[in-house]
């Protein structure tokens, strides 16, 4: 039962992508899309999903849609910050590697947190071990693990928690 749900979820995502790729709503294309996405999903659903159709509840979709503009806004801030440092003739940087803790349990959650950290102000994920992330910070403000966690990943985790769990 659970596997069927995972299979259908993968197939739905694939079908949406297929329609976007072909770019036209032709009946032949749609039928081919249904067949191909069902067949491919049968081989790949083990990689793609763990929860299956449960991912498609309205609440989760809503949270995902909210999260995205937030990420873009953070990215714009990050870029202005980095751009300022790049243009400044003296390169005002103070780099270092700090470690932070994450509260995310699932692999997908860790991936999304790490990617968000990489895309936002002055930080990128160097390595990950269990729930410890090693962050390269272009402008180190604190070396304390607790404070650094709050400053770097706190904002995303609140948002992502609701989206994933």
């Amino acid at each position: 039962m659970k596997n069927i749900s995972r299979w259908l979820y993968t197939a739905i995502i694939m079908f949406i992508l297929w329609v976007i790729f072909t770019g036209k709503l032709d009946s032949e294309e749609l039928i081919a899309g249904v067949v191909i996405s069902l067949v491919l999903a049968l081989f790949t659903y083990r990689y793609f999903t763990e929860k299956g159709l449960l991912n498609l509840t309205p609440k989760k979709i809503f949270c995902g849609i909210i999260y995205f503009p937030y990420l873009i806004w953070e990215m714009i801030k990050a870029n202005l910050d980095v751009a300022y440092r790049v243009i400044h003739p003296k390169l005002p940087i103070k780099p270092g590697i700090v470690k932070i803790k994450t509260n995310m349990k699932s692999d997908l959650g860790k991936l999304l947190v790490a990617n968000s950290i990489t895309l936002t102000p002055g930080t990128f994920t160097l390595d990950i071990k269990d729930d410890t992330l090693y962050i390269h910070w272009i402008n180190v403000q604190t070396t304390d693990t607790e404070e650094a966690s709050k400053a770097i990943s706190g904002r995303f985790e609140r948002c992502l928690k609701r989206f994933l769990d």
């Binding site: 940087i93 103070k94 780099p95 270092g96 590697i97 700090v98 470690k99 160097l126 390595d127 090693y134 180190v140 070396t143």
Partner: peptide, 9 residues
């Protein structure tokens, strides 16, 4: 780089 202040890794 030599400018770095900390390396906890």
């Amino acid at each position: 780089t030599e400018k770095s202040v900390v390396d906890q890794y």
